[in-house]
């Protein structure tokens, strides 16, 4: 197997995630897109771990999973808080910083 096939797969997932983060209106969907990004990073880490025959990549992939869990927890809490205050999860409605 080529190293690049994994890296390019990760790149595609990453860019899809970026697209989702930018263009989704629903807060929950934005968080899902962030998960795509984090997953692509994990694929990269594990691929390089296999490439270099080093365990570090896998260790950090595990750390990333833990961080993702924390991120989803806090992120959903924020979405819930937004929902309670605005009665919507549409992030476009949250524009208090509008100039």
């Amino acid at each position: 197997m080529l190293l690049n096939q994994f890296l390019i797969l990760a790149a595609i997932l990453f860019c899809t995630g970026v697209y989702g983060v930018i263009s989704r209106r629903n807060g929950v969907l934005v968080l899902m897109s962030i998960e795509l990004i984090l997953n692509s990073v994990n694929i990269n880490l594990v691929a390089f771990s296999a490439m270099n025959d080093s365990i570090s990549g896998q260790v950090f992939a595990l750390f990333v999973i833990a961080v993702a869990a924390a991120e989803v927890g806090v992120g959903l809490a924020i979405v819930l808080a937004i929902f309670r205050n605005y009665r919507t999860v549409d992030i476009d409605e949250v524009d208090l910083m509008k100039g």
């Binding site: 992030i91 949250v94 509008k98």
Partner: peptide
């Protein structure tokens, strides 16, 4: 320029990316 200051995080994110 004021129009660029939308207050929408995702727009800023788009510029950033």
């Amino acid at each position: 320029l004021r129009k660029a200051q939308t207050g929408k995080v995702q727009t800023y994110g788009a510029y950033l990316f």
